[in-house]
Amino acid sequence: MSQTKRVVIAAVCAALGVVLPMAFHALPGAGNVWLPMHIPVMICGLVAGPVAGAAAGVLAPVLSSLLTGMPAAPILPSMTCELVAYGLASGMLAHLVRTGRLAVDLYVSLVGAMIVGRLVGGALQALIFSQGTYSLAAWVSGYFVTGAPGIVLQLVVVVPIVAALERAGLVDARYPGKE
């Protein structure tokens, strides 16, 4: 995949990171529950690599905050750092994990990125953004309980979307010639 296409895919995924939360906010409290901004960032990492994933992780929350006011400015820094971690980790794991089976590669990379992003997010909250007031219970509650529907949504949709993009010939196939 050319560098130009990687940049454009990162930008389009960032634009989806602005659009999808706007759609999902028709559902009450949807942002924290369905985590719609995570999906395009992780897909960007999986199809275009870690740098593009990280770029989408920066652009999506910053531009969304500027254009729509969501996320609100006080939580923007922590959310940006967390999304960068998701984009980087999904891209790096997609590059490293090669089992010979597309679905297994993608699920391992996706779950790994979900864990890494949450660990990084929790560490940053504890060390920088909510220093002294953050606890393990708050981390579990914020990242796993409240966002449980979002976790399920990511597990259900991310891999089929990446597979659909490969089938449509829009991104490089991981295993060319193999169905």
Binding site: S2, T4, K5, V7, V8, I9, A11, V12, C13, A15, L16, V19, L20, A23, F24, L27, I39, P40, I43, V47, L153, V156, V157, P160, I161, A164, L165, A168, L170, V171
Partner: peptide
Amino acid sequence: SYVRLLVPVFVCAVRRADELS
């Protein structure tokens, strides 16, 4: 309903990215 929408939205978006690049 929103979940059903995600696959076509992503395919359309990446197709546009492909054309633009």
